[in-house]
Structures are given as structure tokens and as C-alpha cells.
């Protein structure tokens, strides 16, 4: 299955915590390709796509962060109007819903990270549509 590992980190809403994560990773030469933050009033979930996810887990756990790995789908989206919405509509038609998603650019390409309600179904329909699904090593 062509999924990638996303790193999720539990963070309290207090100043500088995202920076603490970035710093810890940076010190070990780990690159952050993308991140997104889901927040409540008192805590948040920081979601990261990094260059070396296994090493990142070790580094953050050593710093007492609560971390968990989640399988997500990452697609390279053609830079054409309506391309993304066509994909999302196609998934919704098949009862695959998006729990969250975020985008990032790498070079000239735009990538979309998707956490679907059903991973297998999501991949199946994306493949059927010949979407450009990325693997960890392609990032």
C-alpha cells in the first residue's frame, strides 16, 4: 500500500512548543516537509511529514513528547483548476471521507496529505483514477 507515515505529536497550548519540536528535529538533521496543527483551547495535535520518521520518533520520545505514527495518503496534485475537488468528490461518492488534510509544496510540485476515513478504499479509488500517490521515499 502506498501510504506514508505521518508523525503526530501531542502539544499543550503554550508558547514555543512547536519550536521545541522543530529544534529537536533540526538538531538531528531531520527535515520537516510539512506540518499542520489541530488545536483546542488547551492542547493541540501537531502533524508532521518528516525526512526520517523513525529517527524523529526516537528523538521526540527522548524529549518526553507523546508521539504516534499514522498512515496517511499523500498525492501529488496536478496543477489544474478543479483537480483536487474532482478527487474529493470521487472519494465522497464511495463513502470515503476526509478526516483532515493539508497541502505543501516541494520544488514545483504541490502535495496533498489526506487522512481518509477508510485508508484501503481511499487508495483503491485514487489508484483507479491514476492519481499520483507518493511513498515515503519519494519525499
Amino acid at each position: 500500500m502506498e501510504t506514508i507515515k505521518q508523525l503526530s505529536v501531542f502539544l499543550e497550548n503554550k508558547g514555543g512548543r512547536i519550536n521545541d519540536v522543530a529544534k529537536a528535529l533540526g538538531e538531528h538533521g531531520i527535515n520537516m516537509h510539512a506540518f499542520s496543527m489541530a488545536e483546542t483551547t488547551d492542547f493541540g495535535i501537531l502533524r508532521l511529514i518528516v525526512s526520517d520518521v523513525e529517527q524523529a520518533v526516537g528523538v521526540l520520545r527522548a524529549e518526553n513528547f507523546a508521539v504516534v505514527l499514522t498512515d496517511v495518503v499523500c498525492i501529488s496534485c496536478p496543477n489544474v483548476a478543479g483537480a483536487l475537488s474532482a478527487i474529493l468528490e470521487r472519494l465522497a461518492e464511495h463513502q470515503v471521507f476526509i478526516e483532515y488534510m493539508y497541502a505543501f509544496a516541494q520544488g514545483e510540485k504541490a502535495h496533498i496529505v489526506i487522512r481518509p476515513s477508510n485508508l484501503e478504499e481511499c487508495l483503491k479509488w485514487l489508484e483507479e483514477d491514476d492519481c499520483d500517490i507518493l511513498a515515503d521515499k519519494q519525499l
Binding site: 505521518q6 503526530s8 501531542f10 489541530a38 483546542t40 495535535i45 502533524r47 520520545r61 507523546a66 508521539v67 504516534v68 499514522t70 478526516e99 487522512r115
Partner: peptide, 9 residues
């Protein structure tokens, strides 16, 4: 607890 953390909000 670290192992009770979930990516699911």
C-alpha cells in the same frame, strides 16, 4: 500517558 495519545482529535 504517551501510549494513550491518538491522532484522532
Amino acid at each position: 500517558r504517551p501510549d494513550s495519545f491518538s491522532d484522532d482529535m
